[in-house]
Each structure stands twice: as C-alpha cells, then as structure tokens.
Amino acid sequence: MTLLQVQKLKKIYTTRFGGNKVQALSDVSFSVNSGDYMAIMGESGSGKTTLLNILAALDKPSGGNVLLNNDDISQIREKDISTFRRNNLGFVFQDFNLLDTFSIQDNIFLPLVLSGKKHKEMAERVVPIAKKLNIEQILDKFPYEVSGGQKQRAAVARALIAAPELVLADEPTGALDSKSSKELLNHFEEINADGQTVLMVTHSIEAASHAKRVLFIKDGKVFQELYKARRSKDEMFQEISNTLAVLSSGSDEDE
C-alpha cells in the first residue's frame, strides 16, 4: 500500500528583495509504501533538507504535491498543521532536540500531552517502547544526565509514542559515536521490522546501508535509486559507495 507519494516536487527560494532565485528542488517524484525503510542521500546543498522540511509540513512546495494517505499535505490549513504533524509524523533530529526542562519520560510524553491524552494511556504506551529501545532505566533522568546515544534513543521513543504513519529522521547518527550509531541503526531496523515506515536523510553510508531503499538526490533531482532486496549489508555498503562516487564525479553517463 502506498503511504506517501511525492509528485513532481519543486521548491524555489527567492531572496528577500526578489533578485536571486535558488532552485532547491526541481523535480522530485517517488513514493513510499507502508512498511518501507528509505534513506535519502545526497551532498550538502542537494536539496535533502528542503525535501524533508516539505515532507514534515514545515515548508511549502512551490510546485508539485505530497500525498500522505492520498491527502495533500500542502492543502492542510495552517491551524490544523500542528495536529496533523502530531498524529501522522514522528521526528528524530541530529541534535536530539530533547527539552532540558523535562525528564526523559516527560520528553517522550510530550506529543501525547499535546494531543490531550490521559496520563494512564501515556504510561501504558511508554512501557513497550522504552523496553524495545532499552531506555527503561533512564526514564526518570534528565537529558543532561544521560549519554548522546541514550538521548537519541529517547528521541526515537518520542517519535514513536504517538504511533505515527511515518517517522522522519534527519541525520539521526550525525552526533553519535560509532558504537551508539550502530546501536541506534539496529533499533531502527527492529522498529521497521515491526511495520513502522521510516524515512531517513543521511550522509552516512553505514546508516543508509541499513535501509531497504536508498534514494540519491543531486541538484534537486532524483539521481538514482537502489533497492537492497536480498543484498547483504556489506554489499549494499559497497553499492552505495559506488553510486556516491559516480554522483560526486559530476557525470551523468549512468543515466
């Protein structure tokens, strides 16, 4: 079943005085099925972040459509957008974005509190997620008391607690050491195995090689797409490196 459809997405930034126009996305189309685990790769400035912002409804496209469950994201009214985001999307950020004022548990509860859920329900929901992510011990601690890896796992728990349709991860391993990264990627794989759709933007070949699909973006266009299928992680790693090498060489001969 198709969960997310991105159709001919365009984004043009205009500088304040209208002089320069920068085309961040020129023509991006792809679709994500329910249960997919997709990585989006590309160099800095390729339009990854713009794409993610539009998918997250933080930014509006200049052209094209984004359909989530056949609803057009850009048609959602301003006042409903936060509710939409809360109910359908989960976010994991590079720098965790946990709030210092809340304990880990309260950070995880935040989306539920904002949706007006009862405390009992929150307490029930957090148990299996915390167990799966191995953060049961630190639920009562504060973000400044735990390690980066733990913080990011807490952030993942926060993204999952509202049971969103789609989890968007922006460079989730960017601020972690290799051990914590590996752990986190394993968690992502497990979550995906449970049926959660994940869309991850990353620089890291290691991170991308965990995904089922890798989408390469260059100069605001889809450059190539790789499916993992039955390949092993190492093979996938190799494949991604090769593609990236082609991508950065600047030639279009493969197409």
């Binding site: 985001r85 809360r86 976010f91």
Partner: peptide
C-alpha cells in the same frame, strides 16, 4: 530554543 523544538514536535502557535 525550547519553543522551537516543541513547534517541531507538533506544538501549535496558538498553543
């Protein structure tokens, strides 16, 4: 910073 994070997580402007 706190409010910008909350906005990303799904906090409304009016909220």
């Amino acid at each position: 910073e706190r409010f910008s994070i909350m906005q990303k997580v799904g906090l409304d402007r009016s909220e």
